[in-house]
Design a binder for these strands. Structure first.
Lengths: 145, 145
DNA sequence: ATATTAAAGGATATTTTTGTCCTTATTATA
DNA sequence: TATAATAAGGACAAAAATATCCTTTAATAT
């Protein structure tokens, strides 16, 4: 469903949110360790998410990645689109470019239903809310950190 | 959602079913042309689907790929699992190996719902039924063939 | 029997994704 | 202002997915 890059990205951003709830900026190394992802690759992904404004970053000592009020509106969908592109939500699932409402592929109507549910899953909660659920112990990120 | 190999596989198998409804075996070349997929790659995918018994094949003149009564029970899920593996249905969507019912990742319960719908989409109809819908013009495969 | 046809199989090439490393730019603080 | 810390950026490496080509095997028709 999600590429590895996207999985690392999701895990990382939830971790960043969790730390930012306690007003801590976090470095790429710490993030990668805590979400169990390869550090340089994770750093690249975070770079991209900064470019797409899903998270913020600061260089220098005491710098790192962070989120604040400006990022509260973002959901998993924004993150997924930023990394994997819109393919999960748009285009023919069978790769037919002629596929359309009037010319539907064999999966067309069924895929619409599934996409509705995927969209709901990825937009019902903000990334901040997901981090709060980890903070409260309701859900768990990575290996019991 | 599906790899390219899987997309080609789905398109090919529906085409094979469509031809088999009219008692025609079809060669890899014809299939690839009609579903607009690269021929040698498609041949490899079909090979794998033969090994997994989703379709049948015969060598020699008048040979080709075909399906019959023995293949009527198969659904898209069988095909997808044969090519892409069970990743769409199983395992943590965020790649966390500690994720479980008692230790759920931030997406765990939502993904379960989505997977239910994906599973329904891929098992509600047999591959034969999908081909019949193409045959009747209800749905369309590839470029208006 | 032999020739022909088509799938099967193996080796190889290309592209994309994943992953690493090194240098540069920016910021904080001593 | 110099130093240290950290993200940004670019070049490179490895692995996986996608795609091609050539040889072998099996079946049919003549």
């Amino acid at each position: 469903m999600f590429s590895k890059a996207c999985q690392y990205g999701i895990r990382s951003v939830i971790y960043i949110w969790k730390q930012s709830l306690n007003n801590n900026k976090v470095g790429a190394k710490e993030i990668a360790e805590h979400v169990d992802a390869p550090e340089p690759f994770t750093a690249k992904i975070l770079q991209e998410l900064v470019r797409k404004k899903v998270i913020g970053s600061m260089k220098g000592p005491t710098g790192g990645f962070y989120v604040d009020k400006a990022h509260e509106k973002f959901t998993l969908k924004d993150l997924v689109v930023a990394i994997d592109g819109p393919g999960l939500f748009e285009g023919c699932s069978l790769g037919l470019n002629q596929c359309s409402e009037t010319n539907p592929c064999p999966l067309h109507t069924e895929v619409k239903v599934v996409r509705t549910h995927i969209l709901h899953m990825l937009t019902a909660k903000s990334l901040k809310q997901l981090a709060e659920e980890v903070e409260s112990g309701e859900t768990v990120l990575a290996r019991f950190i």
